[in-house]
Simulated assay, not measured.
Amino acid sequence: MTLIDTNVLLDLVTDDPNWADWSVAQLEAASLNGPLLINDVVYAELAVRYARSEDLDAFLDAAGLEMAPIPRTALFLAGKVFTQYRRSGGHRTGVLPDFFIGAHAAVGSLPLLTRDVGRYQTYFPTLKVTTPNS
């Protein structure tokens, strides 16, 4: 199983000229290791690109993505890591979704496919992350 970050899926949805090919190849490779998972946060972030939930659900089905709820222990960890981030001088309020995603992967011992390595490696050092630089 692999948890997929929103940015990888947005590469497909937007047919990003710089990243779509990389993201497709990584999704195909990850699918060989088991189900491709997203959580509620990723679903919500993807929803901004769709007019109807049925259209988003059709994309998820076509991409072979499965929903996985965020465990309560991961929600707690996300809050604690966000607190650590803020205490270390972090100011952006929009980073909390990354902490939900990272904590979900960390608690579930799931590899994470993402293009955004910095925060994940800093706040979840044991997390196995697949990025363009790995």
Score class of each variant (00 low, 15 high):
residue 38 I to R: 06
residue 128 K to T: 12
residue 77 L to C: 05
residue 124 F to N: 02
residue 134 S to D: 09
residue 12 L to M: 01
residue 131 T to D: 14
residue 106 A to G: 03
residue 74 A to F: 02
residue 110 L to F: 11
residue 39 N to S: 11
residue 58 A to S: 06
residue 105 A to Q: 10
residue 101 I to N: 03
residue 100 F to M: 14
residue 45 E to N: 05
residue 122 T to N: 05
residue 79 G to D: 04
residue 67 M to D: 04
residue 7 N to I: 07
residue 121 Q to T: 13
residue 132 P to R: 15
residue 28 E to G: 08
residue 90 G to W: 06
residue 65 L to C: 09
residue 92 R to V: 10
residue 28 E to W: 11
residue 92 R to E: 13
residue 122 T to K: 15
residue 131 T to K: 14
residue 18 N to H: 14
residue 76 F to Q: 15
residue 108 G to F: 02
residue 45 E to S: 07
residue 130 T to D: 10
residue 107 V to N: 09
residue 123 Y to R: 10
residue 61 D to V: 10
residue 61 D to F: 08
residue 7 N to T: 09
residue 119 R to Q: 08
residue 64 G to L: 05
residue 128 K to E: 07
residue 13 V to L: 04
residue 123 Y to K: 08
residue 106 A to E: 10
residue 15 D to W: 14
residue 59 F to D: 08
residue 96 L to P: 02
residue 55 D to P: 00
residue 41 V to D: 07
residue 109 S to N: 12
residue 118 G to A: 14
residue 70 I to A: 07
residue 127 L to I: 03
residue 118 G to I: 11
residue 3 L to N: 04
residue 12 L to K: 03
residue 66 E to V: 10
residue 23 S to A: 10
residue 9 L to E: 00
residue 6 T to I: 05
residue 39 N to L: 11
residue 39 N to H: 13
residue 110 L to W: 13
residue 129 V to Y: 01
residue 44 A to V: 13
residue 122 T to M: 09
residue 78 A to C: 02
residue 127 L to W: 02
residue 14 T to C: 09
residue 126 T to C: 07
residue 104 H to S: 11
residue 126 T to V: 06
residue 117 V to P: 03
residue 67 M to H: 12
residue 117 V to Y: 12
residue 112 L to V: 03
residue 67 M to L: 11
residue 67 M to I: 09
residue 86 R to T: 10
residue 97 P to W: 04
residue 128 K to S: 07
residue 81 V to C: 02
residue 107 V to C: 12
residue 94 G to Y: 07
residue 11 D to G: 06
residue 33 N to C: 11
residue 12 L to G: 00
residue 98 D to K: 03
residue 120 Y to L: 12
residue 26 Q to M: 12
residue 77 L to G: 04
residue 67 M to V: 09
residue 106 A to V: 04
residue 45 E to F: 03
residue 62 A to W: 00
residue 58 A to M: 01
residue 128 K to F: 04
residue 91 H to T: 15
residue 66 E to W: 08
residue 35 P to V: 14
residue 62 A to H: 07
residue 108 G to Q: 15
residue 128 K to V: 09
residue 13 V to R: 05
residue 102 G to M: 01
residue 20 A to S: 12
residue 5 D to T: 06
residue 109 S to R: 13
residue 105 A to W: 04
residue 58 A to C: 00
residue 116 D to W: 06
residue 7 N to A: 06
residue 130 T to Q: 14
residue 108 G to S: 15
residue 109 S to F: 00
residue 34 G to R: 12
residue 4 I to R: 06
residue 116 D to G: 02
residue 51 A to M: 08
residue 121 Q to R: 15
residue 26 Q to L: 05
residue 7 N to S: 08
residue 133 N to G: 11
residue 20 A to G: 04
